[in-house]
Design a protein around this nucleic acid. Structure first.
Lengths: 356, 356
DNA sequence: AAAAATTCCGTGTACGAACACGACATTTCA
DNA sequence: TGAAATGTCGTGTTCGTACACGGAATTTTT
């Protein structure tokens, strides 16, 4: 039988006795408060190191009256059930667990179709003095600008959903989009009975501004290049700028008629339900349909069998992790992981009810 | 912009003022300590309710010197990399996060092949005074006996991995095995090119003592009954009592030769790597192979392509949740969910690196 | 050399809850 | 009716850290 026990905690008082100074002095050393004789400071620091002092967070936050405040910069969700509510729920859960430690969260929303709103909200964030920022770097250019300002002000930040390389982020929380595309490709490869054509649909304007859609497509193509070197399967990419306008149905229909052998459709984001509507309407249910994200509309089509697989990324967990990671960095002063790839999950009719 | 802020906390002091009694009295009401006049007690209780008093856990654990101690009853892992280390890692992680709150964990291990060791360890657990128990009810009979004793002593417990119905458990953390079987069936159904025979392998002695293996098989069969009513696919079940003895290879080979159309093999637990060895050796790599749990041996075969899919259940998360759930019940006095089904995950070569 | 400014550091109180001690009131028993 | 037992409650200290205040020592200024 093995027993796991917490090790004996070292208190400030112990350090004080050991260094033969008062508690107040230790406090000054720990928090760079007031002034301490250089020699004394060094002595205390050595003992702190030696005894591996870890502050008691309970007592610390109990005594301290200051609260940390974080800013969240997320896209505006289009409806109550759309994707961006899910990371937000994770944020709320993190808040619930951390609220005893004194935390305040301000949420800023921008429009997914208007990059100026992103800049506006960025400016608002910079006006206040936040202790940390969680942001979805949705628009590359505007995000970089915000990042520069945050760095100048020494405000730590974490990315969620998509990533920007080579900036001083604390952490990135999200999927490896390339690999997620490869996984989708594998599912087609395994489940299509023979060589066929597969349609890849992007629902987005300014594709090149959305790096993770590009990455997903890349991973998808790369899979087939490796596993179908002879190119027996045919891949056709279509971009649809305005998903809410149903006129794209015609475009899709035309492409399919022209090819004649389209057996699978891959949608690179959560808008897969729009094409599901189309397939249902046209009674084309033999077509294998794979998309992303478990939003309500998609869940319904998954249950009814129009959508076969959904690739998901635990958005709640992402929101939760983003906040807790930031908290650990700012309050606990722990070193956190710089990249935190979330799982790439496959959801079907059979396991949807248990997905969290 | 929305701001999420913690609501103002009510302190014992506030209650005391409101009820016009001393802090000591409130304390007595809250903890059934000492004696309180019935009338006073009622008045205080009403105000506690009214103001929705939530104790400050920080101050509470700081002042309280008592620590909770939990017992963990898990199977002995056969090796450093085998399944039961994973829930244990989750337990350790939970311990790390909770250790500031004063928690002690004693780990008891029993042999998976000897139910007497389970009884022995149960007895040891009952000797000490634990505040809660996390157990894997591996052997049904022996588990029931332990449960009865725990109930008699008023010690709360949670189940992990498998479940026993109708006992006063705090919570069950684990998979819905039936549904996980159905999911495996779907994967065969989708990825086998045409009607074929599928082998279902149980690696276990005393099958009937392992309820979740039975459930997985049931879900598997039921899927095909619903989705292949004509029975075009043939399902063959084999039980292998001793997986470490490779003589079972012969039995499998014989069955396959006899049928002639076996295109898929389903293993109902983590022992799938044993049959993977066989397939590799026989160069039968066209056969679709699906099993459970991401242990090291399986991971290797998944990467090399011998195993196609692994159905997983986030064992670390299960261990973590088991401890935190128990903690929330015992210390925070929260009401916790009675059943907590974990996700049923599909792992392939493509997403294995990101699985957590 | 005295006054002023600066550096350095110890003490005391607060955070909110737990818990021990003992005061006072009430009841029980002889 | 008085002593003993019991019931009811308020006070004070403690947990480990944060932080304000102010005293003493040292340096700088005039």
């Amino acid at each position: 039988m093995k027993i796991i026990e917490p090790k004996k905690r070292i208190r400030i008082k112990d350090i004080a006795e050991r260094a033969n100074v008062s508690i107040g002095t230790i406090d000054r050393v720990l928090h760079n408060r007031g002034e301490v004789n250089a020699e004394t400071k060094e002595r205390v620091m050595k003992i702190l190191e030696e005894l591996d002092y870890q502050p008691n967070i309970l007592a610390s936050t109990l005594a301290s009256k200051k609260t940390v405040s974080f800013a969240i910069l997320f896209p505006e969700p289009q409806s109550d059930e759309s994707y961006w509510n899910k990371p937000m729920n994770g944020v709320k859960q993190a808040f619930n667990e951390l609220q005893t430690y004194g935390i305040k969260i301000s949420v800023f929303r921008f429009s997914q179709t208007d990059s100026r709103t992103f800049a506006e909200q960025s400016a608002k964030i910079l006006e206040e003095q936040f202790d940390g920022v969680v942001m979805a770097p949705f628009f590359s250019r505007e995000s970089c600008r915000l990042v520069t300002e945050l760095n100048a002000r020494n405000i730590p930040f974490v990315f969620i959903d998509s990533d920007i390389k080579d900036c001083e982020k604390i952490s990135y929380i999200g999927q490896n989009s390339y690999q997620s595309g490869a996984l989708s490709a594998k599912l087609f490869d395994y489940t299509l009975p023979g060589p066929a054509s597969i349609l890849i649909l992007h629902f987005a304007k300014e594709m090149d501004n959305h790096n993770h859609l590009v990455q997903r497509e890349k991973g998808f193509y790369e899979y087939f290049r490796q596993n179908d070197p002879k190119g027996e399967n045919k891949l056709i990419t279509l971009e649809i700028e305005n998903p809410s306008d149903k006129s794209f149905f015609g475009k899709v229909k035309q492409t399919m008629d022209q090819d004649g052998n389209v057996r699978g459709i891959f949608v690179t984001n959560s808008q897969v339900y729009r094409i599901a509507e189309f397939l249902e309407q046209q009674n084309l249910q033999h077509i294998r349909l794979i998309g992303h994200d478990l939003i309500r509309e998609n869940a319904a089509f998954l249950r009814s069998g129009v959508i076969d697989f959904l690739i998901c990324q635990r958005p709640e967990e992402q929101g939760y992790k983003a906040v807790t990671t930031l908290f650990e960095h700012v309050v606990m002063k722990k070193t956190v992981m710089n990249e935190n790839y979330t799982s790439i999950d496959i959801i079907t009719k059979e396991n949807i009810d248990y997905y969290k």
